[in-house]
Simulated assay, not measured.
Amino acid sequence: MQLLPPPSPLTPPPPVWEKFLPPEYSSLILESQVSTLKKELYFSLCNNPVLIEDGQKSFWLEKASGKRCIMLSARQLAITWGNSPQYWQWISIPEARFKKVPELLDVCAFEIRGWMNTRILSPRTHYSAYVVYKTRSGCHGFRDLPIQVGICLVGQKATKRFICFDEELMKSKEREDGWIEAEIGDLFNEIGCDEIELSIIDITSPYWKRGLIIQGIEFRPVKKLW
């Protein structure tokens, strides 16, 4: 049997890292990054979320798997009284990913709904969804108040659970970026041709509420427990 000669040192290695990048990665990077090594691009997309769809969504990759992660901005949510300045105001804060985020000034009926197509997520992947928020020092009306949340694919029955924006009840988790998150629920994205529907609702409490800032809804792959 004749042995093949070793590959030339000038032969380029196979594009190992390119297979971890999304097909549209060239539109997600800066012009100065075009000549960057694919490995560096991959870790850049893992560590530095980029805005897509006219700044209405934030996109990044999960480092361990290369799966897509998405944050849906509050502008793409249906917030009851969200465009009424006496109830909600849209503000710019440096720690937010988006240009404007809504701050709750005063409402009694608290209701947020959202929809998103699953084609933007990785197929055959189990996702969890989180509401990402902050509270002002004068936050009021949420103490000991259960907020009903739910998520499902349109046409299916939503899984309901309760969260609480009262941090003392330990229903929420502080993140490395300084925001707080509370899990809404989870779903399995099979082939990416469905519509997600989610809700965050309290319409029964008689208390007026204020001091909550909503950044958006985040979708991340569920971490596997080995």
Rank of each mutant, 00 (worst) to 15 (best):
A109Q: 15
I112C: 02
S26K: 14
D166P: 10
Y87N: 14
W60N: 12
F188G: 02
R220G: 01
C108D: 07
V131Q: 10
S26C: 08
E176N: 14
Q76C: 11
C108K: 15
I52A: 01
G185Y: 05
C152T: 02
G178N: 04
K38W: 13
Y87H: 15
Y127V: 06
V132Y: 08
V16E: 11
R136K: 07
T135Y: 01
F20S: 05
Y133K: 00
P23I: 01
C46E: 00
P85W: 06
F110D: 10
K19F: 08
R175Q: 13
G216K: 08
E103P: 00
L51K: 11
F142K: 12
D194H: 12
Y130C: 03
L41C: 14
V101H: 02
A158H: 13
V101K: 00
E168C: 08
L61M: 01
L51E: 10
A109R: 13
T204K: 12
I93P: 01
N189Q: 05
F188P: 02
C46A: 00
S27C: 00
D177L: 09
S128G: 09
I79H: 08
E174C: 00
A64D: 03
H126K: 07
P13N: 12
L104Q: 10
R119Q: 06
E176C: 12
Y130F: 15
A78M: 02
I214Y: 14
P6H: 09
W179R: 02
S137G: 10
L21H: 04
E53Q: 06
V16Q: 11
L145I: 00
E111V: 09
E18P: 03
A74F: 13
A78V: 01
P14N: 12
D202E: 08
D177Y: 11
S128V: 07
D186I: 00
K160E: 15
E197G: 14
L45N: 05
R161N: 13
T11Q: 06
L28K: 04
A109V: 14
K209S: 04
R124L: 14
K39R: 15
G178K: 05
K100D: 03
F142Q: 11
W226T: 12
I184D: 01
W90A: 07
L121Y: 02
G66P: 13
S26A: 14
P94W: 02
